[in-house]
Design a protein around this nucleic acid. Structure first.
Lengths: 342, 342
DNA sequence: CACATTCATGGAAGCGCTCTCACACTTGCA
DNA sequence: TGCAAGTGTGAGAGCGCTTCCATGAATGTG
């Protein structure tokens, strides 16, 4: 007896595959990993053995020698309730998962909270237990971009980080253009008394959209000081809309920085008897499913969340494989989706 | 020179820690893993070395010998759009993450879709690349419970699986009692013409809640055939409510199987000029944030999603460590949350 | 025909860790 | 004092895999 066969239930090893195929472990390994320098004969034998034994390489063993983990982390620093039920987060997960599935990598989800847990996360990343990280940071970060750059782990930010945006790779939607186009659309419609409900001032997406608004308003020579803030949620949008209508009952056009807030605003407008779009035209942002279900259906700017995540993940994989040069940023275009609110 | 020191940037190894502490690798390993059979002196030396070197064990190497991966999978078979933006999913992730953080395990997210990807997932699980799996299956499964039992991987279902519920461990909320209590609450209030908007008939949670409704209605000697179906979403609730009110304008009490659907139903009731709770009393299910924001705020049954996920994860960890005996099921209690809709 | 080059192959090293085992030393008890 | 039991320690094996290197066969070149 040369060697004890594996216990029933345990996974077969490369050694067993090699023996079954009548080749050496080295050849079996080569055949499994791309088949470089392997004769067609040997390749076929190994393939057959893999199939018949149901072989699946031991990731730990492979990882130990290749020094890759074949898994990437999706990091969500300080997630609050909102992040979770946010379609943004959901879409991101979907996009990442889509791309990773093709390349047989694993998705490790890292949810950190301020303080201790955040340190734990950074240590984990610094320990290189993953090959790279996709950071989904919505909020003012704790110099996250810098800390990641220091660690030197391949990493892509989803959405422009607050600071050190030039030191890291990130993918974002063109929020500024989006804000501008939304505003221009209302102006083109003939609205003259515009207001905006912006997102939280500690999120870059919100800031950029607001910048777009200011740009368009100034370019048109209109007053751009009717700015209200919400927290990207529906009730937040309601509240902002109430205050806005109380202070500026003459408003006839409204740029809202998210569909959820726009949905809340539409509720308030309906309550107060304003017809949309005849009395007040409204443009939202995101084009999430809710936009099709409001009354009236919402004209909005498309936020290609899944595409963005897919793109970001591909960039991350490139960085990991060393094919990337320096920090790059990709800004995805946005697009006006016409429905009935404007 | 005894051995090449590590390149700058690379993580220190156990060997270096041992040398720095002046002990053997074996002792260093023991000190790091619980400190069994280690003198206080040696322990202190190792601790200091770990700190000063910033040592973090190589998971792959450890995994290779212990045959554990120290990571568990959260499996979402055939996720549709809904699953993602569902607070249920979000809460589950939070709960799992909470518990895993304490035990230094990783959360691997596995999103499968029907067909090929589902096979890939099963192969991954069968390959024992994770120590266990938490299955979040909302829908009629493809004999998932049986397939998991066959694989023999430690596994816990979040929510009662469709079939083979006696062969697997699962944690669920007491949906049946919830449906019953909700119904009884309306009856106690004096409602006599009750209807329900149930969830999709291919989800156990929906079926169980409906069963509770039937039980309570029959016990009270009331007609229990006014049953409408929605898909757990807000527009689904609206639609069901419209049909319901058209066919039974005399209804005075409404049990709705989810807060989201209840929110839609409230919108329709308001549209049609019914006062809530005076004309029609409404009880929802879930106690998700939306319940506090409806008009009027929704009386509902609490669905302790995060607790459930935490509990399920703990059960999974027990199973992994071999401390669990056979399939168990834990049914978490639900509870009436009184607001203004009933 | 002699020699260089390419190609497929297997032997063997070694990734970083845990854990068994043997050993030396301390302690307890008769 | 003698011996058993207990305690802390280090040497070394080995987890399953990739990869370097030597080898021999096949092919090309002068």
């Amino acid at each position: 007896m040369t060697k004890t066969p594996h216990a029933i239930g345990a996974s077969p090893t490369l050694d067993e595959v090699a023996r079954a195929a009548g080749v050496s472990r080295a050849t079996a390994s080569r055949a499994i990993n791309g088949g470089d320098r392997v004769s067609p004969r040997a390749q076929a034998a190994v393939d057959a053995a893999v199939r018949s034994l149901g072989y699946s390489p031991n990731r730990a063993a492979r990882s130990l020698v290749t020094r890759r983990s074949d898994s990437i982390a999706v990091v969500v620093p300080e997630p609050d309730e909102r992040v979770f039920s946010d379609p943004f987060f959901a879409g991101t997960l979907r996009g990442v998962s889509n791309v990773l599935a093709e390349s047989d990598q694993q998705l490790v989800l890292l949810l950190a909270r301020r303080g201790k847990e955040s340190d734990r996360t950074m240590r984990y990343l610094a320990g290189r237990h993953v090959d790279g990280a996709l950071i989904v940071s919505h909020h003012r970060d704790d110099n996250l971009a810098r800390r990641m750059a220091d660690i030197g782990l391949p990493c892509v930010f989803g959405g422009r980080p607050w600071s050190d945006g030039d030191r890291v790779t990130y993918v974002d939607v063109d929020n500024e253009a989006g804000g501008r186009i939304a505003t221009e659309t209302l102006i083109a419609r003939g609205c003259t008394t515009l207001a905006t409900i912006a997102g939280p001032a500690d999120m870059t997406a919100a800031v950029d959209r607001l910048t777009g608004w200011h740009t368009a308003m100034r370019a048109a020579g209109l007053r751009d000081d009717r700015v209200y803030y919400g927290d990207f949620t529906e009730p937040g949008g309601e509240e902002a809309a109430r205050q806005l209508l109380a202070e500026h009952p003459d408003v006839d056009g409204l740029v809202v920085a998210s569909d959820l807030m726009a949905s809340g605003a539409l509720t308030v407008l309906a309550e107060q008897g304003r017809r949309v779009p005849d009395d007040v035209a409204v443009v939202g942002f995101d084009d999430f499913p809710v936009a099709g279900r409001t009354h009236p259906p919402l004209t909005t700017m498309k936020n290609p969340v899944v595409d963005m995540a897919e793109q970001g993940t591909r960039m991350l994989l490139q960085q990991i494989s060393g094919r990337a040069v320096g920090p790059v940023r990709v800004i995805m275009p946005t697009e006006l989706i016409r429905r009935q609110s404007c």
